[in-house]
Amino acid sequence: MLLIKCPWCGNRAESEFNYGGEAGIARPANPDTLTDAEWADYLFMRKNPKGLHQEQWNHAQGCRRWFNAERDTVTYRFTRTWRIGEAPSSTRDVDS
């Protein structure tokens, strides 16, 4: 059970959250101008790194807000979480 720091509510149990996958995939402004391959890249291709991963989570059983997080996919430890539209703190901001 991961302990996840919601940037609005603080530390809560993983069971309150939904995972949203890779963060920072902006929807193309003009999809019509993209080639099929470029569109496929947006739709399906993922970094899936072994190590630090920027991802989205939703505090579904709490404030229902989506937020960004950086987490190590090997140790599962969060290094920081931040609100959508804000910049992440430059240092680790999660206690656990």
């Binding site: 929807r27 989205q56 989506w66 539209g85």
Partner: peptide, 13 residues
């Protein structure tokens, strides 16, 4: 609902 909220919050805040 989750779908709408997600787009609203993450893409079109």
């Amino acid at each position: 609902l989750t779908w709408l909220e997600r787009w609203l919050q993450t893409e079109w805040p």
